[in-house]
Simulated assay, not measured.
Amino acid sequence: MLFGTKPATDVTNVSPTQVTAVSPAGSGTVDVSVITPGGTSNPLPFFYVGAPFKSGLSVSSGPTAGGNTVVISGTGLSTATGVSFGANTVTPTVLSDSQVSVAVPAGAAAGPVSVSVTTAGGTNNGLSYTYIDVPTIAGITPASGPTSGGTAVTITGTNLTATSQVTFGGVAAPFSVVNATTVSAVTPPGAAGAVDVTLSNPAGTATDAGAFTYAAGPGI
């Protein structure tokens, strides 16, 4: 049996109408023909599929519980049969030769894992996805400030490294991440009274109900 001009290996005569063989290395489209003592068969086309190439993830992080959808871009993805996030493999939905989408499986723990795509042409990796735990809020200091805003506040909790937003009463506040357990923020202006403080990251949102109180200034 020939694949183009290259002989196949492990050719086995299964029946008068069937043979099996291992294809040699190659690329593109080649003609396959079977050679017997009685002659050579008519050629049939065989397509070599190249290994996939991944160029990026639409989302590079998400909750440890998984479930969010990620689109993987690249080339040679039309025959994708599996996408692995670390040790967990799921079946993707092929959108085109350049894109597949996949529901991220649950992760064993927070942290980065490698992402690999398996197609008929092989497996390619080289991308990274980071599992993130949902944040929690343990305390806010100080717990009150003027309605004009501008109070420097320290928020403590857990899983704060990937913080993407802090709000006071639904109003976004400027903030900076100090470390995994501390975020500093500056209160925006707000109406007098207690408001909820929320802190969000790609895995979810933590809410401390009524945690900060806007105090009205003295009247004249």
Rank of each mutant, 00 (worst) to 15 (best):
A152H: 02
G126S: 09
S15K: 00
T123K: 07
T141K: 04
P24R: 02
S55H: 00
V71E: 04
G56N: 04
T141F: 07
T147V: 10
T161A: 13
A80H: 12
Q165F: 10
N42C: 14
A192I: 10
G145P: 00
G66L: 05
S98V: 13
S60P: 10
T69W: 11
P135C: 11
T141R: 03
V183I: 08
G76W: 04
L44D: 02
S27I: 02
T75H: 00
L2V: 13
T158Y: 05
A191P: 03
A143Y: 01
T12S: 13
S148D: 06
A103D: 12
P105K: 01
G56Q: 04
T91V: 15
A110Y: 04
P189F: 10
G50R: 10
S23M: 06
S15I: 00
G217H: 10
A209H: 08
S116E: 04
V178D: 05
P63T: 05
K6L: 14
A206Y: 02
V102E: 04
F85E: 09
A110T: 11
G145Q: 00
S184I: 15
V134G: 00
F53S: 15
G122C: 10
G28C: 03
T20V: 12
G139L: 06
Y129P: 12
G121I: 10
A120M: 13
P63G: 09
F46I: 01
V59N: 14
P16Q: 01
L2Q: 13
A192L: 09
A209F: 08
T93N: 14
S41E: 01
P105H: 03
P7K: 07
L95A: 11
I72Y: 01
N201Y: 01
A173I: 07
V113C: 07
I140P: 01
S116Q: 07
T81Y: 03
N159V: 08
D31E: 14
T181K: 10
G157I: 02
T130E: 13
G82P: 05
S15A: 06
L77Q: 00
A103R: 09
V34N: 04
K54N: 07
P7I: 04
T182D: 00
T151P: 03
V32N: 06
T5R: 15
G157Q: 01
T81N: 08
T93P: 11
S176C: 06
G67M: 09
G149T: 09
S27F: 06
G67F: 09
S200K: 08
P52Q: 02
V113K: 04
L95N: 14
A185C: 09
I35C: 09
A8W: 01
G219A: 15
G28M: 01
G86C: 07
V83A: 05
A65H: 10
V178P: 02
F168L: 07
L127M: 07
S101E: 14
F212V: 08
N68L: 14
V90W: 05
V113H: 03
S58M: 06
A173C: 03
V177P: 06
T36A: 00
Q165C: 10
V30G: 05
S144Q: 13
G76R: 02
T130Q: 10
